[in-house]
Design a protein around this nucleic acid. Structure first.
Lengths: 114, 114
DNA sequence: CTCTACCCATAGTCTACCTATGGATGAGTC
DNA sequence: GACTCATCCATAGGTAGACTATGGGTAGAG
């Protein structure tokens, strides 16, 4: 059952994946699988993050110093890698949110001129 | 004069270029240079379409049958290639506008949960 | 002990953008 | 007449970042 509308691949908005990850991690440390679940849930399953996009993206964020990673145990006693925002990551998040908003506004101004 | 804020490269939202081109052409046939001018003007110079992105994109749209092209003279008596939306192009435009809106809504639902 | 849900990750491919480059023509200027 | 600027077209080469496909390991339930 379940609405069964085709979820967007984030592909349609490359560059936005980082933003979604940073935002999600701003709520607290989380492991990869959990991040994908969280984004899916919040967007009512409209956004689906594929694992093949997710983990490379997390590596990227790590290399850029925006998140740090650490192996821990989940509440269900499974081994998982927890990702956490750094201070630089928080700054980056703010910048990207702002850029996203401005960009959407600019596109809208072309699509729906006053 | 002019705020001098760095114009976005459309780079930030790949996939959106086609949408902007289709929308602009829905206002009537136009040549490449004019399209870029138009988008820059409507967005208050927030969006800048580089020629190296523009012409390949127009070719793409042509191959997909969404626009057709024709050599004509400009009002200033210069030779230029005029692009025009096809019926399929109009349909595609509607679909892309709708997808864009839904996608932005989905991203916002993650960025700013109710 | 098998199956499902959880959890990680890489290789290879493809799309679509950017930078850089090159050329032609009309109009105005000295 | 030569120069220069704005207009107009287009391709080559590089790169980023997503996708598909694949592979593996572990805990808990039946």
């Amino acid at each position: 059952m379940a609405a069964a509308r085709d979820p967007f691949k984030v592909d349609l908005l490359p560059g936005t994946l980082d933003l979604l990850l940073l935002k999600t991690l701003s709520l607290g440390p989380m492991h990869g699988y959990g991040i994908a679940q969280h984004i899916g849930r919040l967007s009512a399953d409209a956004l689906r993050i594929e694992e093949g996009s997710l983990y490379p993206a997390l590596q990227r964020l790590r290399l850029k110093g925006w998140v740090k990673a650490e192996w821990r145990m989940t509440p269900t006693r499974r081994r998982a890698r927890y990702y956490e925002l750094t201070r630089a990551g928080r700054k980056q998040l703010a910048a990207e949110v702002s850029a996203f908003d401005q960009l959407v506004a600019a596109v809208r101004s072309v699509l729906k001129p006053a």
